[in-house]
């Protein structure tokens, strides 16, 4: 394997910066490693941030400032018994968590997480390899990511329907209505920026906003930005739209019967989706990684800001009822999104 890698890199070093399969592979491994680590660490950050906002300390006992709580949780999840209920549809019950986790990472394969870079020459074997910003640069990137994230909701839906549990069924029903509500708003809100840039590729979005803060699309499309954020919260099941598993109402919704690592996979998927939505918002509306040499830092700051915003909102707002979510999406947000698209079209034509 290593010999093959070496010879291929040797041939590709000659014509840089072409995207090689080695570069794509490095990027894919990078995304998998970094995002699953952040997704795990995100649970710790969430507990800490929520604790500070509620004047508590949060996890403190395991390691300094509770930093090793993550390891403790991981050991607990991995060693817990994997229970499959007797009357459940066992096959569907067992593959449902994998759908959530897998689609979350497939969606990330078309998202530019960091800027492109070239590995320095002094590093053996891989030196000089050009690592692209996106593992696979589709020219319809935005649609692919949104479609894949939508497919991710089959995880909660199938989990809820297969587990022969009333709370699970209610969770699955809420998944379906939540999906049918927010999906229209996501598509229509992001349509206006797409019209302005004239492309569905994330790289084109990034390049269109290369002229500094003044050229960010948020200034031209503030309405679309707010709508996309609200729909993004619904897409990632964050408060105030965490209807699928709201503890006070439906025990744990679709996740009621799950334990151990299958339960953990739902949450890895959910945190990966939070990062995806943050990256999309940062690239489509806040200029992405276009700031020259500092692009890698600014994109991390922007993504971090959106991640923090999700935790902040969770600490600040109660959640809504399912009928309120449907009312909000279909009667308020969708008309605003349509009007926004029409006005954008008129302004562009005149």
């Amino acid at each position: 394997m290593e010999i093959v890698t070496y010879t291929t890199v040797e041939t590709f070093v000659n014509h840089l910066p072409e995207v090689t399969w080695v570069g794509s592979l490095i990027k894919a491994v990078l995304i998998l490693a970094v995002i699953s680590a952040i997704a795990g660490f995100g649970t710790f950050i969430e507990r800490k941030v929520l604790a500070f906002m509620q004047r508590r300390l949060g996890p403190m006992h395991v390691g300094p400032y509770g930093l090793l709580q993550l390891a403790a949780d991981g050991i607990k999840l991995f060693t817990k018994e994997d229970i499959v209920p007797q009357n459940a549809n066992k096959l569907i019950f067992m593959i449902a968590p994998a759908i959530t986790a897998a689609t979350a990472f497939i969606a990330l394969s078309a998202v530019p997480v960091f800027p492109d870079f070239t590995i320095p020459k002094f590093i053996p074997v891989l030196g000089g390899t050009f690592v692209p910003s996106i593992a696979s640069d589709l020219n319809i990137g935005i649609l692919f990511v949104l479609g894949m994230m939508a497919a991710g909701l089959y995880g909660p839906l199938l989990a809820g329907m297969s587990q022969a549990n009333k709370w699970g069924i209610i969770g699955a029903a809420r998944t379906a209505i939540q999906f049918l509500s927010y999906e229209v708003v996501t598509g229509l809100s992001i349509l206006a920026p797409i019209m302005l840039v004239g492309s569905l590729s994330f790289v084109d979005f990034n390049n269109a906003q290369a002229g500094g803060i003044g050229s960010w699309l948020i200034w031209q499309q503030p309405v679309a930005f707010v709508l996309f954020l609200i729909a993004g919260f619904a897409e990632t099941n964050r408060t105030p739209f965490d209807l699928l598993e709201h503890e006070a109402e439906v025990v744990s919704g679709y996740a009621t019967e799950y334990s151990g690592m299958r339960w953990g996979m739902f949450f890895i998927g959910e945190y990966a989706n939070m990062i995806t939505i943050s990256v999309i918002a940062a690239i489509v509306f806040l200029g992405g990684y276009s700031e020259g040499g500092l692009g890698w830092l600014t994109i991390i700051l922007k993504v971090g800001f959106f991640f923090f915003l999700m935790l902040w909102v969770r600490a600040a707002w109660p959640h809504v009822r399912p009928d309120q979510l449907m009312w909000l999406c279909w009667k308020v947000l969708m008309p605003i999104a349509v009007i926004n698209v029409v006005i954008t079209g008129i302004v562009m034509m005149v």
């Binding site: 649609l143 894949m148 379906a176 049918l180």
Partner: peptide, 13 residues
């Protein structure tokens, strides 16, 4: 992908 994911989700309900 997008159309059928949404359409079949409605069938599920």
């Amino acid at each position: 992908l997008i159309v059928y994911v949404g359409a079949i989700m409605a069938l599920y309900s």
